[in-house]
Design a protein around this nucleic acid. Structure first.
Lengths: 247, 247
DNA sequence: AAGTGGTCTAGACCACATA
DNA sequence: ATGTGGTCTAGACCACTTC
């Protein structure tokens, strides 16, 4: 592989290391480097793109954080063998379903501004009197009901319900409230009569319940979502990565 | 807060940025800085400990990856408000149970070297004829059965069963095969008769099934574990972090 | 011995926040 | 205006892998 010095534009407001990471990612995805093969050494990349080694390492670290590359000291930096999707994170239902090759649909049950419950007030760290947006949805995969989702968002974060597009996460990103951390609680349970009706299953069938609280970089809670997934059709897949994969 | 230049030892083989991260973490946990308060600026830390800014930033990035700190551009670096446990990762049953303040116990059902099943051969990417170590355990929390775990490890990674201490993960770390990435599949299900007997529950009760494959930094599979948790007592808690929290 | 990633320095300029 | 984090450079030495 050989990059040209011209691929990085100093005038571009995007940091050099992100530009370089994007170029490398594109090149690898385009088949420029096979899985298991080494990318050029850090010093070679410095020469090729005209950047310092710190910058090159930062670009590589980003792709390592995504799971696309891994380093071997004294040997080189290599393309991971993973078949998996690239480093999306904190994905919503739509992205996840698309990634599995299924079509995602939504039946809206609720979309309103309301007073928070006591629990929601605590979870979302709301100030007295602050309102919330409630989103109730039945989620379909390949045309069949798969999950019930009930999301609660502080109104201060999503002041206008009309701003809400197809994807909640895409909307939040646009509004500068992209969630970057969170906590999920997952447990096995049995379906209630209401859930059974909405999901077209029998009452008392196994259900996977997921409770998710996500936060912005400044730790402000963004979204509290409770979901109930059909236990017979849904498997929660979870990629693990140690905190020090990159640093 | 004021650090002394003497806290960092150049002769120590531990990198400076890790020494500094450890000192900062200890200082914060000892109550030296309250949640929400700012730590000293990066340049101040440089002066105080006699390190370059790159090194100081790397130390801080590590603590951000752990979730202990967060940065606000133009403003400062602050201690996160979380009450949660520090940044352990890919935790095993023992660590997790301890963290909840419960006592963890184990009843061994199996500890042997055996031929892998076809599925295990594929999952663990074994070469022809390679054997595996099987560990079958009932896990107790506060004296009551909580889960059944069945772990499979390539014999090449754990050649001597006597090396196995109380914690599988601690042993793997010692052997240089610390898992750093992995994939988990979680689903809701109902207990079989055998599981019900082992867990002291009724047959057909809700069960949370977890399947986990972990890998080393060089992508070699380390451990394939299937677990069955009592649905009425166990909640799987999962912290989320975007890939770019640090870089 | 040569090449690779791992660590580290001492500067510099920019964008943003706070006052 | 000052201080903060965000980016970037051009070197250096070390530890490890490979030949």
């Amino acid at each position: 592989m050989m990059f040209e010095a011209t691929i990085l534009e100093a005038e571009n407001s995007t940091p050099l290391y992100i530009q370089l990471a994007n170029h490398l990612r594109d090149h690898i995805h385009a088949g420029g480097i096979r899985s298991g093969s080494a990318i050029p050494s850090e010093r070679d990349l410095c020469d090729q793109v005209g950047a310092s080694r710190v910058t090159v390492r930062k670009a590589i670290s980003r792709l390592i954080a995504e799971g696309l590359l891994f380093r071997k000291q004294g040997s080189g930096t290599f393309v991971s063998s993973q078949i998996e999707a690239p480093g999306s994170f904190l994905t919503g239902f739509t992205e996840e379903t698309d990634a599995r090759g299924e079509s995602a649909d939504t039946i809206w049950m609720m979309k309103s501004v309301a007073k928070p419950s006591e629990e929601e007030q605590v979870m979302l760290e709301l100030s007295q009197g602050e309102l919330v947006v409630r989103l109730g949805r039945v989620r379909l995969a390949s045309g069949e009901p798969l999950a019930i989702e009930h999301a609660v968002i502080p109104q201060s974060i999503l002041p206008d319900l009309d701003q809400l597009g197809a994807s909640l996460y895409a909307t939040l990103e646009l509004l500068g409230s992209r969630p970057v951390t969170g906590t999920q609680k997952i447990r096995a349970s049995l379906s209630t009569a209401t859930e059974a009706a909405l999901l077209s299953i029998d009452e008392g069938t196994e259900i996977l319940r997921i409770e998710r609280l996500t936060r912005r970089a400044d730790d402000k809670p963004v979204e509290f979502t409770r979901s109930a997934y059909r236990g017979d059709r849904y498997v929660f897949v979870n990629k693990l990565r140690g905190p020090y994969a990159n640093i």
